[in-house]
Simulated assay, not measured.
Amino acid sequence: MIVFCGYANNDVTVHVPHVPVLGERVQATAISQIDGGMNANAAVSAARMGAEVIFAGAVGPDARSTEFLAALEEDGVDTSWAPRDAFLSTAVVLIAQGGDRSIISQDDPNDADRIAAVAEKLAAAGGGRLFLDGYRAAFLPALDKRVSLVIDLDGCEDKNAALRAFALADHVIVGRSLWEGEFGIDVDQWTTLAAKHNTHLLVTDGSKGWTLATPNGDMTIEPAVSVDVVDAVGAGDCFGGTYIAFVDAGRSPVAAARLAGASAALACATAGPRGCPSRDELDSFTATLTTLTLQETR
C-alpha cells in the first residue's frame, strides 16, 4: 500500500510562445483547466503501474473537488482517506514552445496535523509507504516503524528541513538543480549521505538523466530516454510515482529507476500533467529500448 499526501491542484494551463520576463506581455496560444498537483499526479502514475494507491490530500466540499477525486478513482486511486473540509488549491502553469515551463502554485491545507493523522492511520492499517512532496518535509512527525517514508523534495526551500526529512526517509527523490544548485549538496556527498541515513537517494536531472545513490555506497548514473518532447509538465511526478510503485512491487531501486525514466520520457511526449503511461504502454515502450536500458527491469 502506498499513501500519497500532498498537492492536489486545479491546474490552469497557459501555452505561450515563451515564458515572459518581468513586465513583458505575451499572447497565450491556448488556455485550459485540468487536474494536477505533484502528489496527485504521482499517485495516478503509481496506480497506472498496478500499485495499491490511496490519496489522502485534503480537498474541499465543492463540486470541483468532487470531480477531481472522481478522476483519481477512475485511474484506480482510492480517495476514501481524502478529507473534504478544506479546498482544492490552484496552480497556474505556463508552458512555452519546446516544453519549458514555469509554475505559480497556491499553498494547500495539508499541514502538520493532517500529515500526522495520515501517518497514524497508515500505521493502524498495518503499515505501508507514505509519499510526501516538497516543503512537507518540515512537517514530519516521528514515524511508526510500520510506515516507510518516501519524499519528493522538489518544492522544499529549506535545506535544514530537507536534511531532517532525508534522515527519516527510505527513499528520497529530488531534482539536481535543487539538491546541488540551491542546497549545495554536490555529487561527492551523495553516497555518504545515503549510507549515513540508510536512504536511497534518487537525483533527477531532466533530459540529462538520473543518479541513484544507495545505502551500500553504490552509485548508478544513467542518461534520460530520448523522445520528442511535447511538454514536461508532470514528468517528474510520473518518475516518482512509477519508481516507488516498482520498488513497492519488489523491483530493485536501480530497475525501478530505469522503468521510471522510461515512464517519464513517455510523459514528456504527451501533453498535460498526467501523461504517465499505463503499465501496458510502458512495457511496449521498454521492449523497443536498448539492452542497457532494459537491464534488470524484468
Rank of each mutant, 00 (worst) to 15 (best):
M219Y: 09
R251S: 09
G60N: 05
V59N: 10
V230I: 02
L178Y: 09
A125S: 09
L22F: 14
A287P: 07
T242R: 04
M1W: 06
F55P: 00
D107Y: 15
V172Q: 10
L289A: 11
Q97R: 02
I54H: 14
T199S: 07
A167N: 11
V3D: 04
R136S: 12
I185Q: 01
T288S: 12
I115M: 01
C156D: 05
Q33I: 14
R251E: 08
F68T: 03
W190G: 09
I151S: 01
A169D: 04
P253T: 01
A138H: 11
V229N: 12
A224E: 11
Q97W: 00
L69K: 00
I104N: 07
T191P: 07
L202D: 06
S65C: 12
A8K: 05
G234R: 10
G250D: 12
G250P: 04
D107P: 14
T290G: 15
V227C: 06
L294S: 15
D75N: 14
T220C: 14
D100S: 09
C276W: 00
G155I: 12
V225N: 03
S226K: 03
F239E: 14
V14P: 02
S148M: 12
E52C: 05
L153I: 06
V3N: 06
N216G: 11
A137W: 13
L22C: 12
A260Y: 06
V26T: 13
T288C: 03
A123F: 07
I34P: 13
P20E: 15
G209H: 14
A91F: 08
D35C: 11
N9D: 13
A265R: 01
L193R: 03
A257V: 03
S148H: 15
V118N: 06
V26C: 03
L149F: 11
E74W: 04
V229G: 11
S207L: 13
R176S: 14
A123R: 02
V172G: 02
A8M: 06
N110Y: 03
L282N: 00
S89D: 08
G155K: 08
I34C: 08
A255G: 03
D283N: 05
L88R: 02
H15I: 00
D108Q: 15
V254Y: 01
D11M: 04
D248F: 13
V92P: 02
G272R: 05
V3H: 02
G175L: 05
P61E: 13
E74L: 05
G6L: 10
K145D: 14
Q295T: 12
P141H: 14
A30N: 12
W81F: 04
V21Y: 15
D100P: 00
G98S: 03
H18E: 12
A161F: 11
